[in-house]
């Protein structure tokens, strides 16, 4: 092996190719683990949405579709910038790696900033589960009566009551899922800072850029989770307005 004495080769691998395949497979297996982790939350969400569809629809109207949509665009852009960082790494352009990663960090911070705005609005409206939670059923009751009426085309049975407890369950999932997602983004930003530091130390070369590539996979995965969260939490109740 010509590259068997490469400075990038760890002591327990025989070749850079073996090392690259191992780290890439490791990331994919880790992502499988992540899917199961979020899967537990999605499963719980599906169960309760089926049990309390009206409450979930009402509750999802409390979310700001504008901020959610904006954040979706921000994240999709950050997927682009991280992909460009990986490409720069393939070409061995150190300054470009750093530039694109800094751009990704900025987009990530914007996303988290918007999340902060949304969270604090929920706090002000007493929509954070726990003792502070205080949902007023009449808050959007009219909209609900209208919608269920028009959808079924009849008005002979009254719209089912929406219990504050059921709305609270929606918000429990909202905070657990988006909070877990935000935690993954914070970890991702930390990883990017580490990778930028590695890049400034000239640790990457066209034959070795696994950390950048694997981080790209991770970041795309975090984006994909959001792509599922956004419609489930923000959009899915909208058709009843």
């Amino acid at each position: 092996m010509s590259n068997s004495h490469s400075p990038h080769l760890h002591h327990h691998f025989h070749s850079l190719e073996q090392q690259r395949q191992a780290s890439s497979l490791g990331m994919w297996v880790f992502i499988a683990q992540e899917i199961m982790f979020f899967g537990g939350l999605f499963c719980g969400y599906v169960v309760y949405r089926n049990m309390y569809p009206e409450a979930f629809a009402v509750a999802s109207h409390q979310l700001s579709i504008g901020w959610g949509g904006f954040n979706t665009v921000v994240l999709i852009f950050s997927s682009l910038t991280v992909a460009l960082a990986v490409r720069s790494a393939q070409l061995g352009k150190k300054n470009q790696i750093i530039g694109w990663l800094v751009a990704t960090i900025l987009l990530g911070v914007i996303f988290l900033g918007v999340k902060c705005i949304e969270y604090s609005a929920k706090w002000e409206h007493h929509l954070v589960p726990g003792i502070h939670f205080n949902y007023e059923p009449h808050y959007t009751d009219d909209a609900l009566h209208e919608s269920t009426g028009s959808e079924h085309g009849t008005d002979h049975h009254p719209a089912p009551a929406v219990y504050p407890g059921h709305v609270q369950i929606f918000f429990a999932f909202y905070f657990a899922m988006t909070g877990m997602h935000a935690l993954h983004m914070i970890i991702g930003i930390g990883l990017m800072i580490w990778i930028i530091w590695l890049a400034t130390k000239d640790r990457f070369a066209p034959e070795y850029y696994a950390p950048v590539e694997l981080f790209g996979l991770y970041w795309h995965f975090v984006d994909v989770i959001w792509i599922f969260l956004f419609p489930l939490l923000y959009l899915i109740g909208r058709h009843v307005t």
Partner: peptide, 30 residues
């Protein structure tokens, strides 16, 4: 790899339920 994350998230929900009474596993809250 495929099973452990599910118990992890389950126990996390349990901890949230216990700490904040958010109602995910409490029949009184639905």
């Amino acid at each position: 790899v495929l099973g452990t994350p599910v118990i992890a998230i389950t126990l996390l929900l349990l901890v949230l339920e216990r700490a904040f009474h958010i109602g995910i596993f409490d029949p009184a809250l639905g």
